[in-house]
Amino acid sequence: MNLRAPFSTAVAIGFGLLVLLGIFIPDLADLRNRILNWAMLLAAMALLLGLLNLFQVHYQRIRANERSVYSIVLILAMVVTFIVTLLQGSDSAAAEWIFNYLVVPIETSLMAVLAISLTLAAARTFQHRTDLMNLVFIGTLLVLLLGAGPLFGMELPYFTRVLSPYINNVLALGAMRGLLMGVALGTITTGVRILIGADRPYGA
C-alpha cells in the first residue's frame, strides 16, 4: 500500500482548508472544532512519541556505554517525573516539589546565565565588527541601559525620561511593527504554500 505523496497531500490540503474556512464561515464552525479536537489529541500523541523517541535514543546510548551517565540521569528524571505527575496529578505535592525545587531553579538559573552570556556577546560583537548597523545597535543598547534606572544611586533624567521612552515609543515601535508585519506575511506565505501542496513537510 502506498500512502505517499498524493494521499497525504490531499489530506493536508483538505483538513487545512476545512479549518481555514471554518474561521470565516460560521456553518463550518462545528466541523472545525471537531477537527481541532482531533488535532489536539494528535499533538499530544506526537509529544508522547517524542518522549518515547528521547527514551529510545538515550537507552541505546546506555547500552552502547556512550556518555551513559548523562543518559541515565535523563531517563531517571524523565521516568520518575512522568510517573509521579501522572499518578498523583500535576497539582499534587510530589509533582509540585519536582517542579519547584528541580525544574524552576535550573530554568531561572539558565536565564540568569543568559544575561551574562548576552553581555559578553554584545561586547565581543563590538570588538570584532564596527559597521554602522553595529554602532547604532551598541549605541542604542547603551542609551537603554543608562535609561533603565538609577546608576550607582544617581539618576540620569535625560536618559530615563527623554531618550529611552523616545527610542521605545517612536523609533523601535515603527520598526517593530514592520518586523511583525513581515513575520505575519512570511507565516501566511508558508501556510499557503502548504495548503496548495507546494511544501510537503510530512514525509510525502
Binding site: 493536508a12 494528535l42 499533538a43 513575520v183 502548504i194 514525509g203 510525502a204
Partner: peptide, 19 residues
C-alpha cells in the same frame, strides 16, 4: 504520514488565521 499531514494542514490553517 497522512496523520502528520493532518497536523501540518491544520497547523498551517491556524497559522494563516492567526497571522
Amino acid at each position: 504520514n497522512p496523520v502528520t499531514a493532518i497536523l501540518v494542514g491544520v497547523g498551517a490553517a491556524l497559522a494563516i488565521g492567526g497571522a
